[in-house]
Amino acid sequence: MADPRDLDYKEIDDVIHGRVRLAVMAYISGAGAAEFNELKAKIGGATDGNLSVHITKLEEAGYIGVEKKFVGRKPLTVCRMTDKGREAWISYIDRMAALLNLRG
């Protein structure tokens, strides 16, 4: 494990490190997948447009997969964490822990 003193805050993954994106990644890391409205309710305070922008950013980074489908006439947007996203998430947590000197 890296020495916390050697770490630079610039090494923290910017794609994850925003309050909304961090919340999205955190919730999906536990649930595995979640629907758009469920995420919006859990995160709180984010508008549809705002949340969409952040989800798109995570999708473009390959951290989550977005599936759009219909259940009856109701459109659903399901966000699922990818393997790359899980690796990035674990790495982010490790970096944060080291930066805050929570370990070692």
Partner: peptide, 9 residues
């Protein structure tokens, strides 16, 4: 906050 959200999920 991230931790509690992960647990909720």
């Amino acid at each position: 906050i991230a931790r509690s959200l992960a647990e909720e999920g």
